[in-house]
Structure formats: structure tokens, C-alpha cells
């Protein structure tokens, strides 16, 4: 039992090793037909999100506190460095989920 648990722990260590990646992660999202998906991001990577909307919408990347407003014909543009690990929501307020960033 103990041996298994140790094995599990070791595997946890291995599978969490980060992979280096270059270039920004680019996401194009829409508030009107949102179909949220998960996107993998490496810690430290640049993220560039563009969000279109036919109505005024405040777009928020949780955990990084990046905010921008989208309106008809004028997409919101959000750029930041993903400098912490975890799963974070990109959301149009009040509660439309646009995407999730999985930062490892």
C-alpha cells in the first residue's frame, strides 16, 4: 500500500513537469455565441485574447485581474503574462463563461 502511494506521488511529480513554449497564446472569443473550451498555457507565457460582442460587455480574466470592455464593432483586447498556475476563467460579466485557461 505504502509503496503504491509512493509510486503515485512520484508519478505526480513527473507528470507535472512544465514544458517550455514560446510565442503568445492567441484566443478569439465571442460573447454572443460563447462555446467555452479549455486552453493550455505554460506558466510565464504571454496570452492575447480578443473578444467580440454586439452589446456592451465587460470582459474579465479571473486570477490575473485583467479587464476590458467590448462593444458592437469594437472588440475587447486583453494582453497579459500568465505568471501563476491554476485554472482561470475568462468571463463576460455578469456570468457568461467564454473560456478557461489552464496554466501549468
Amino acid at each position: 500500500m505504502i509503496r503504491w502511494l509512493l509510486l503515485v506521488l512520484m508519478l505526480a511529480g513527473c507528470s507535472a513537469a512544465p514544458t517550455a513554449e514560446t510565442g503568445p497564446v492567441v484566443l478569439n472569443l465571442s460573447v454572443d455565441n460563447s462555446s467555452p473550451q479549455r486552453t493550455s498555457v505554460s506558466r510565464g507565457q504571454q496570452v492575447e485574447i480578443t473578444v467580440t460582442s454586439t452589446k456592451d460587455a465587460e470582459v474579465h480574466v479571473h486570477g490575473f485581474d485583467v479587464l476590458a470592455t467590448a462593444s458592437a464593432g469594437k472588440p475587447a483586447s486583453l494582453k497579459f503574462v500568465a505568471d501563476r498556475t491554476g485554472t482561470f476563467e475568462v468571463e463576460a460579466h455578469p456570468d457568461t463563461l467564454l473560456a478557461q485557461l489552464v496554466v501549468r
Binding site: 500500500m1 503504491w4 502511494l5 509510486l7 503515485v8 508519478l11 505526480a12 507528470s15 507535472a16 474579465h60 479571473h62 486570477g63 501563476r84 498556475t85 491554476g86 485554472t87 482561470f88 476563467e89 468571463e91 456570468d95 489552464v102 496554466v103 501549468r104
Partner: peptide
């Protein structure tokens, strides 16, 4: 928790699939 703006803005990373399968197997066997 959906309490944005304050509590719970960060969720955990998904648990790796191999860990999930091994964990389930251990639970069953044990």
C-alpha cells in the same frame, strides 16, 4: 465556487489522468 471577484478566482489544475486511473485502481484493489 462561482464567487468571482474576491474568493475563488483560481481553480486547481485538472488532476493528471494517469493519477486518476491509478488512484481508482488502488481504491478498488484495497
Amino acid at each position: 465556487m462561482i464567487l468571482a471577484h474576491g474568493v475563488g478566482e483560481r481553480h486547481d489544475l485538472p488532476l493528471p489522468l494517469d493519477l486518476v486511473l491509478q488512484g481508482a485502481a488502488i481504491a478498488l484493489l484495497a
